[in-house]
């Protein structure tokens, strides 16, 4: 049972890592990155390293994810304002 879970976890990690870099939509990529961070925290917990798991969940997935989402929002707002300034056609 344990080995099955580990294999599934390893596969999910590789899959989410691949999706995070392969997705062309930045918003989906960021969400995938957060998912990857949470799975990574789970992997550290399985490796009996709860300290690293805590740090990964809080900083890797939580804060970095929030910062990436914030950056995404800033990029979009900037894009919209540039469009308005240049009077982009609908």
């Amino acid at each position: 049972m344990g080995i099955l879970f580990d294999l599934l976890l390893a596969f999910a990690l590789l899959w989410s890592a691949w999706r995070a870099i392969a997705l062309t939509d930045p918003a989906s990529a960021v969400v995938q990155f957060i998912v990857f961070g949470l799975l990574m925290a789970l992997a550290w917990a399985r490796l009996r390293a709860p300290d690293i798991a805590l740090a990964e969940a809080a900083i890797g997935a939580g804060l970095t994810g929030a910062l990436l989402l914030d950056g995404l929002g800033t990029l979009r707002t900037g894009q919209r304002q540039r469009d308005e300034q240049h009077g982009s056609r609908p």
Binding site: P50, D51, L54, A55, A58, I59, G62, L63, A66
Partner: peptide, 17 residues
């Protein structure tokens, strides 16, 4: 046990965010 300054700080920062 597992824990410490960095983890506690991350939780505080998350609360602020």
């Amino acid at each position: 046990r597992p824990g410490g300054a960095f983890q506690a700080a991350a939780v505080l920062a998350a609360a602020a965010v």
